[in-house]
Design a protein around this nucleic acid. Structure first.
Lengths: 341, 341
DNA sequence: ATTAGCACTTAAGGACTCGGAGTGCTAGGA
DNA sequence: TCCTAGCACTCCGAGTCCTTAAGTGCTAAT
């Protein structure tokens, strides 16, 4: 059905349309992309490609543009991820290695990706799920309040203020807090976060009765902060790059979708091994407002452990090989940097 | 020079242009804003207003639109901040009070402001400058590394990994860390952050020699994290609202300016008592890309202490009374909520 | 000081034309 | 059987022209 030449034509159409942003016709194709055949032949191929739904024409007597399905085929079979130049890789390395902080790593990564791809970049914070407990700290804040700080081996810090029920407030002594801290760290230290709930389940029973209200309050907050999916934290940048593009959907819809972080999470979050590139094209995105965009994403992490994902959002009409190269490269470096922390 | 009627005309022009987004002519003015005079009279006034630079016409035979100077006069003398309705205030209250976390307060505030004003909202994190040290925690991470966590009374938590110089690495004993923690909290606890550098200056001298390398490393990181202006952290939301507006400058320029957080900080940061509303109109903004936008900002804080600022960015053609009302109201509530934490 | 009347300007929108790019189809050639 | 040349057809987009509506500035009268 699709012989080599037809595929070559499709590739040429995608590349042409991506670079010029104008529907590409048979004559232009024949002259520029020396395919060795006449425009008429190309037209015949185009008809076939159109019947199969890979390309479409905006109106009669216009050139062809790729459909979502066409881009999909292009990405899957007709293109190779374009590796970055040595200079680009050095730039990434030096730009990211200057970060002191998990926050800063994420912020810089976003800016880097946006700049590299000239699109909107999205980076998810490293997930708590694959971390272990490094330390749990309890700090009496005076009154009936205690601050709980959870530190993970991946450098993540979660803090929460714990409000202890009023009647038992007088029992918050430094001794009790210190005791609880010791016990907590003994029981939960080094455990995977997913194991913590089980590990602390029968902890209050082991404590003297007067310390139990405090322990109960702290534990409920701790468990709560584990349940909350903190990998839902994302940072976005490069929205200015959207202004240059004209979407078939309104720019407003796209911006709105991007601002709903929950949506973003779904987009990045679905499926995908770490270091695997995921490309979602046009209507493949479940969210309505993003039907005219494509999303290229990858997981990053330490070793083969996926900590989180990052990616870029751009028009379906994007430079896939280049974008994929940039996303992959950045994901790798970020993984390294996070590991180094 | 500017009698009452001319001012009334200016006000009518501003209000008309803001609501219709079209240049407003003398006839429309006379009929809608019953000023009790004929169009011809209004025209005469318009000529005077134009000579003084308060209004301009895009081209001959078009109506007038206000200039930056015109908006300025309108804001300063012709308008009153419009208070929010009771329902709106209740909505703010309930929306903000659900936040558990400083991060969440900020995030929710941004979304709230954006929704209320239908513009881009910007919220600065509470500054460290006006906080006191609640607690400093040190956690050995194994090897030559220690995590330092600084907790302030305003609920802010700063964490840093401290790398202790290699040769002295063996000296990181739990005893030394605990000792340093105790001493640090004794010396710095309850102090204003600005006082901390002085307070800890001669601390190493008081320690046994084998603990000094550790102390020196921790202190240098601590001081560094105090110097870094963490009130430079800002969160932005509602960019989708920009899509609806057409700026004289390109949308891209505006988005770019907004993404440069440093620029935002300058914009919000300059001058202004807490609870004072600042309005910067058009070219009054130092940044080129924002010459066609106005910024309404206010400080928020506990009592009369300004912790940080928040504001919105919109087209110069904005509903100033309403926007100012929303910004003021949100600033007040956020101040309260932060205090309550 | 205000108003009515009038001539003038200008952008926006609609109708029309025209050229170019591109197509589909058919018939002839390797 | 596949490719190519040629040709008639379609349709968008740019350009031109015209008209309309809104608005102005000026002058003279109240």
């Amino acid at each position: 059905m699709l012989d080599d030449r037809k595929l070559a034509v499709l590739r040429a159409i995608v590349e042409g349309y991506v670079s010029t942003n104008e529907p590409v016709g048979s004559k232009a194709l024949a002259s520029r992309h020396n395919l060795g055949v006449s425009p008429a032949t190309i037209r015949n191929d185009m008809v076939a490609l159109e019947e199969d739904g890979y390309i479409a024409q905006p109106h009669t007597s216009a050139g062809r543009i790729p459909t979502d399905k066409g881009y999909r085929l292009f990405v899957d079979r007709l293109s190779a991820v374009r590796p970055l130049s040595a200079a680009e890789r050095r730039a990434i390395e030096s730009f990211l290695s200057g970060a002191v902080d998990l926050d800063e790593i994420v912020t810089r990564t976003v800016r880097l990706l946006a700049q590299l791809t000239r699109q909107v970049a999205v980076v998810q914070y490293p997930s708590l799920t694959h971390s272990t407990v490094q330390h749990i700290e309890l700090v009496p804040l005076g009154g009936t309040r205690v601050m709980m700080v959870l530190i993970t081996d991946t450098g993540r810090v979660e803090q929460r203020v714990v409000e202890v029920a009023e009647e038992s407030g007088e029992n918050i002594t430094n001794v009790a807090v210190e005791h609880l801290r010791t016990v907590l760290n003994t029981v939960a230290g080094g455990k995977w976060l997913t194991e913590v709930p089980d590990a602390v389940a029968d902890l209050p029973a082991q404590l003297p009765p007067e310390e139990r209200p405090l322990a109960a309050s702290v534990l409920s907050v701790l468990l709560e902060s584990l349940v909350e999916r903190h990998d839902e934290k994302v940072v976005m940048g490069g929205t200015a790059n959207l202004a240059a593009v004209d979407f078939s959907a309104s720019l407003r819809d796209v911006l709105e979708a991007l601002e709903e972080h929950v949506v973003l999470m779904r987009l990045l979050g679905e499926a995908g091994d770490p270091s695997m590139l995921t490309v979602r094209i046009g209507a493949e995105n479940s969210h309505e407002g993003l039907h005219s965009t494509s999303i290229v994403s990858a997981g990053y992490g330490v070793g083969d452990q996926a900590l989180a994902k990052l990616g870029v959002v751009g028009p379906t009409r994007m430079d896939y090989p280049g974008t994929m190269g940039a996303v992959r490269a950045v994901a790798r470096y970020v993984g390294e940097i996070v590991a180094r922390q």
